[in-house]
Structure formats: structure tokens, C-alpha cells
């Protein structure tokens, strides 16, 4: 009789876990069917033989897809060389993403700080002003940037009118255009997490810093920066990852030639008709993203353990 309540409690607990699985089933199934599962199919595709008109030959396996990510075989003498075209696109993607991250940081950090130091009632308005572009269609924002940097766009027209230049500067369809576009499009993703951690910043700590003879820069470097580091890391990750996988922005602003990884992947599923290579490239991109995320998770858990003391 004494065990009876405990038994009832354990049964109740088990029933609760079961109902929790039932409740989460629809979300889990949808995501498995339309997001996670296809990734496994793609993994399988990456090791199959390419079909002549796209697709693959089922059941015929080949390492050709993965081989082609990094190497190429000369059509005439079968010599193997590095796939320079691919590697340069990898390199461009990583380089542009890093520069984008740093640029958004340079613009975003002071902006987030500015918002966080406004009086409470106006602060909401500033946050709102950041949120609006964040939720505005990415394609529209890219298109807006295109209009600004076109040869006949505002920038060139203005510079010509001022007599700074005679001929319009070709910005569109260069790496610069992609960079401008990505900075413009991903800037809110940097500001919002930075703001979130700055909003919680205890300015009595800043006062304590000044009290202990720190100058403005010392306070920024020794007190503010370490305290908002979680937001800084989160913002950087939130900008870096979509930059790396960017597709729309380089397609619209980079034209056909200045490809990034996303466009290279699309090419394999379109004109390239090399699905195994496209699948292998996709997985490679995903792995790079996962590594970046892992770095973030480790960083976040570490700062979580030491922070909020």
C-alpha cells in the first residue's frame, strides 16, 4: 500500500511523456518530411552516377560527385588538377562572408549601442526601425540596392553631378556589389542580437569603470565589449551563415559571372546537369555552416557559464 502513490506517480509521468511525444509529432513529421529527410536523400545522391539530363542513375554508385568538388580531370589526357573554378568560388564565398560580417559589425555595433542608450520610450521606435527592414522581403531589399548602385543609379548620378567622376563607376555585377548587397541585407541580423545583449548591460559597471580611472576607450574595450560578447558572437554567426549560403543577392547583384557557393550549387541542378556534384557541394556548404555553428554553441555555453555572475 505504501508503494501505491509512487506507482501512480510513475504511471502519470510515463503518460505525460507519451502525450508530449504525441503533441510534438506533427511538427517533427513535417520537418522530417520537408527538411531533414531530403538532406539524407541528397547525401545518397552525392554518391551516385550523374544522369545525362540531370538527375542520377539509381543504384549506380560513384565518387565522381565528391571528386569533382575539389578536382577536375582533363578531358583529353585524364590528368587530375585542382578544380580552380570551384575553389575560387569557395574562396570568394568565405572571403565575402567574412568581410560582410566585419562590415556589419563596424556599422552595427555603434548602432546597437546607440539604440540601447536611448531613453526607454524612444528606444522602442529605434528597434522598430531596425525590425522593419529585417522583415522586409530580402529580394526587394536586394532590388533596392541594385537601383542605387546601377550605372544610372543614385550613386553614380550624384558623383557625376558633383564632378567627382566623368564616367559612371561599374559597381553592379562586381564583387563589390555582392558585398554592398549582403551588408545591406544582413545588417539587421547583426544589430538585433547586439542590441539584445546591450540592453541588459548594467551601466553601473560602466560608471564603476570610469570611477576607477578608465577612459572612454578603455571602458569600451575592457568593460562593454566583454559584457556584450555573447550578442557579438550571435550577431556574427547570424550574418556569416546566411552570407555563406547566399543565393539571391549574388544572383541579382553579381550577375552570372561572380558566383557564390549558392549559385554554383544551383548551376549543377540547372545548366550543369550534374546533380551528384551539386549534392556534394551542398553538403560541403552545410558542413562549413555546422562547424561555424559548433563554434558558436561552444562559445555561447562558455560565456553562459561565466557570465551573469
Amino acid at each position: 500500500m505504501a508503494r501505491e502513490p509512487e506507482l501512480a506517480a510513475r504511471q502519470a509521468h510515463r503518460a505525460e511523456i507519451r502525450s508530449r511525444w504525441l503533441l510534438s509529432a506533427p511538427a517533427l513529421i513535417i520537418i522530417f518530411v520537408a527538411a531533414v529527410g531530403p538532406l539524407f536523400v541528397m547525401l545518397a545522391y552525392s554518391v551516385m552516377v550523374r544522369g545525362d539530363y540531370g538527375d542520377v542513375r539509381f543504384g549506380e554508385f560513384s565518387s565522381e560527385g565528391w571528386f569533382n568538388v575539389f578536382f577536375q580531370r582533363d578531358i583529353f589526357d585524364d590528368t587530375i588538377t585542382y578544380a580552380d573554378a570551384h575553389l575560387s568560388i569557395f574562396w570568394r564565398s568565405i572571403r565575402l562572408s567574412l568581410i560582410t560580417t566585419v562590415s556589419t559589425l563596424i556599422l552595427g555595433f555603434p548602432t546597437a549601442y546607440f539604440i540601447a542608450t536611448r531613453p526607454r520610450h524612444t528606444r522602442e521606435v529605434w528597434v522598430f526601425l531596425i525590425t522593419i527592414p529585417f522583415w522586409t522581403n530580402l529580394l526587394i531589399r536586394t532590388f533596392a540596392m541594385q537601383e542605387v548602385i546601377r550605372n544610372e543609379g543614385v550613386v553614380n548620378t550624384l558623383l557625376q553631378a558633383l564632378g567627382v567622376i566623368d564616367q559612371p563607376i561599374q559597381i553592379l555585377y562586381t564583387d563589390w556589389a555582392i558585398l554592398f548587397g549582403m551588408v545591406y541585407v544582413y545588417l539587421p541580423l547583426m544589430v538585433l542580437p547586439l542590441y539584445a545583449s546591450m540592453e541588459r548591460l548594467d551601466f553601473r559597471l560602466v560608471e564603476a569603470g570610469y570611477d576607477l580611472y578608465a577612459g572612454r576607450f578603455a571602458v569600451l574595450r575592457r568593460i562593454i565589449l566583454p559584457l556584450v560578447k555573447p550578442g557579438l558572437v550571435a550577431g556574427s554567426i547570424l550574418v556569416f551563415i546566411p552570407s555563406l549560403g547566399a543565393y539571391v543577392t549574388p544572383r541579382v547583384l553579381g550577375g552570372g559571372k561572380n558566383m557564390m557557393l549558392g549559385n554554383l550549387i544551383e548551376l549543377q541542378f540547372g545548366a550543369g546537369r550534374n546533380w551528384p556534384l551539386g549534392a556534394a557541394l551542398s553538403i560541403t556548404l552545410m558542413v562549413i555552416v555546422m562547424v561555424a555553428l559548433l563554434f558558436y554553441v561552444r562559445n555561447a555555453s562558455r560565456s553562459g557559464a561565466t557570465g551573469h555572475g
Binding site: A2, E4, P5, E6, A8, A9
Partner: peptide
């Protein structure tokens, strides 16, 4: 909460579960 062991009596009746 449920007790790990023991009984709770309300008006003489065990209501622990």
C-alpha cells in the same frame, strides 16, 4: 505532487492518488 510513500486522509479517506 504525489507522495513517495504514505497516505493522505481527508475525512478518513485516502486521497493521495
Amino acid at each position: 505532487e504525489f507522495p513517495t510513500s504514505g497516505a493522505i486522509l481527508l475525512g478518513g479517506e485516502d486521497i493521495a492518488t
